[in-house]
Amino acid sequence: MDKKKNKYDVDIPKEVLDAFARYIIPEIRRFHESEEGQAFYKEWLEKYSEYAEK
């Protein structure tokens, strides 16, 4: 297995990270596209307006 150390000194096999990414990315997209996600993002942008697109 291909292992890579990170700044927290935890060995996580690349295969595990890849599998996690394949799972979490669609979940993040679904949340962002939902009404709840859009409302959360709007509130977040109001709090952190420096990240709003100009």
Rank of each mutant, 00 (worst) to 15 (best):
D18T: 12
R22P: 02
H32Y: 09
E50A: 09
V16I: 10
D2K: 13
E15M: 09
A52E: 13
S34N: 10
Q38P: 04
S34I: 00
Y8R: 15
K3G: 08
S34G: 08
E15S: 15
D18H: 04
K7D: 12
D11T: 05
V10P: 03
K47Y: 03
H32P: 00
E36G: 10
I28H: 08
V10I: 13
H32M: 10
K42Y: 01
P26G: 03
E43G: 10
E50H: 13
K3I: 10
D9W: 13
K5L: 08
D9N: 14
Y8V: 00
K3Q: 03
S49Q: 04
K47Q: 14
E46W: 00
E15G: 14
S34C: 03
L45F: 02
L45V: 04
Y8C: 09
K14R: 04
I28C: 07
E43C: 03
K4F: 03
R29D: 15
D2Y: 01
P13V: 01
K42R: 09
F20K: 15
E15V: 12
A19M: 07
I25T: 10
I12Y: 12
Y8G: 05
F40A: 07
K7E: 07
D2M: 02
E15D: 12
D2L: 05
L45W: 02
Y48H: 15
Y51R: 05
R29S: 11
I25N: 11
K42T: 12
Y41Q: 12
R30Q: 15
H32T: 04
S34Q: 09
E27T: 01
W44S: 12
I25L: 10
R30D: 15
Y48T: 01
K7F: 06
S34P: 09
V10C: 06
S49E: 06
F20V: 14
L45Y: 01
F40N: 04
D9P: 11
I28W: 08
K42V: 01
Q38T: 00
E36T: 09
W44I: 00
E15A: 14
K47S: 02
E53T: 05
E43F: 00
V16G: 01
F31K: 05
F31W: 11
M1C: 02
A19C: 06
A52S: 13
E33D: 15
E50F: 08
K47E: 14
N6K: 13
D11N: 09
N6I: 01
E36V: 10
Y41N: 08
D11L: 09
K42W: 04
H32A: 06
E50V: 07
F40Y: 11
Q38N: 03
K54N: 13
Y23W: 09
W44L: 15
K3E: 04
E27R: 12
L45H: 00
E27D: 02
Y8T: 02
K47F: 01
Y8K: 15
E53Q: 09
E43S: 08
D2P: 15
Y41E: 05
R22D: 15
A39C: 01
K47H: 05
A52Q: 14
Q38G: 01
V10W: 05
K47D: 00
Y41S: 04
F31V: 05
Y8I: 02
